[in-house]
Design a binder for these strands. Structure first.
Lengths: 153, 153
DNA sequence: ATATGTGCAAATTCTTTGCATTAGA
DNA sequence: TCTAATGCAAAGAATTTGCACATAT
C-alpha cells in the first residue's frame, strides 16, 4: 500500500530534529560533538538522498575538514547507528542518516546516479526470516537500479 | 507466495544449464568463450552464494588466470546481464550468476560474511514503482545484514 | 585472418594508519 | 585536565589502464 509523494517540496524543514537525535545517540556512545561532526550531520539531514564520501567532503567545504575526517566519522556514525551504509551496485559507499522518520528505499539511475526516495518499505516482514534463523541486529537494504528517463538511449 | 526449500541438497546438479544459458548470452553480446570465462561461469554456477573477486580468483586457480581477468570478465558478464552485483554493506563487490532459476536474496552475517540464500522475493512488485517513474531495465537488490548465531557476542 | 581476450607491469584511485597538535567534556 | 578528534603525510589495498602476445571465431 504505497503512501507516496511527499518529497518534491523540500527545502529546509524538519532537519534539526534528526540532527539532534543523532547528536544524542553519539553522546550515548561517548563521542564528542565537534564542529566537523555537526557539519556532517547537517549535510546528511538536509540531503534527500544518500551521500558519497566525496559529496560529504565537498558539501562541508566551508568547514574545511580533511577527507580522512569524513571516513573516520562515517565509520563512527555507522557504529553508533546514526548512519546507514547503502552502497551503489558497483560498491561505491553511500551514507544516509538513519531517521526516526520512517524507513524507506531508493531507486537509483545506474547511469547518472540520480536517486529517488521511495516512501515504502516492504522488507520489514522479511527481516523476521533472518531473525528466525538466529540472526541478531538485522537490518536490510533494498535498492532498485534502472536507467532514469533522462538517461534513456 | 514463497515457494521455498530446494537448495539443501546441492553438489553438482543443474549447473551446466545455467552455464550454458550464460554462454549463449555472452555469444549474443559477441563475446568469445574462453577457458577463463568457462572457469568463472562454472565457479559461479556451482556456488550457492555470491562470490568476491578474491574467491573467484582463488577458486579458478587450476586455470591460473590473472586477477585482472577476473575484474574484466565480471564487468563484461555484468554488462551482458550474466551476473548481478550485490555488494556487501561495506561495498565489497560480490558477484552472482543471474539465474533463469528464480530470483532470491540473502541474509549476510556482518561479522563473518556467512551468506544464506532466501528463496523468496517480495520486491518484484516494487520494481513497478520504478517503472512507473519512467525508469528502464529495472533490477534490484535486497540484502539483509545481521550477526549470525555463530558470531553472537 | 582478425579482433577480442589475456598476462604482466605500472598507474591511479580509494581507504587506512601513525603521529603530533587541537579542542571537547 | 585528560582523552578523543583532527590534519597532514605516508602506507597499503583495491581497481584500472597500456601494451605485447595468445587464441577464439
Amino acid at each position: 500500500m504505497p503512501s507516496d509523494q511527499h518529497q518534491h517540496h523540500h527545502g529546509c524543514h524538519a532537519h534539526k530534529p534528526s540532527v539532534e537525535a543523532a547528536v544524542e545517540r553519539l553522546r550515548e556512545h561517548h563521542h564528542r560533538i565537534t564542529g566537523a561532526r555537526r557539519a556532517l550531520l547537517e549535510l546528511l539531514a538536509q540531503s534527500d538522498k544518500p551521500l558519497t564520501v566525496a559529496e560529504l567532503h565537498a558539501g562541508s567545504r566551508d568547514h574545511g575538514m580533511d577527507l580522512v575526517t569524513v571516513y573516520r566519522n562515517m565509520e563512527a556514525f555507522h557504529a553508533a547507528g546514526v548512519v546507514q551504509r547503502c552502497p551503489l551496485e558497483d560498491g561505491t559507499p553511500l551514507f544516509e542518516l538513519m531517521g526516526e522518520n520512517h524507513h524507506h528505499h531508493h531507486i537509483i539511475c545506474r547511469v547518472c546516479h540520480h536517486v529517488e526516495k521511495l516512501d515504502v518499505c516492504v522488507a520489514e516482514a522479511f527481516e523476521k526470516l533472518a531473525t528466525q534463523r538466529g540472526f541478531q541486529d538485522v537490518t536490510h537494504t533494498l535498492e532498485l537500479y534502472g536507467t532514469c528517463p533522462a538517461c534513456k538511449g
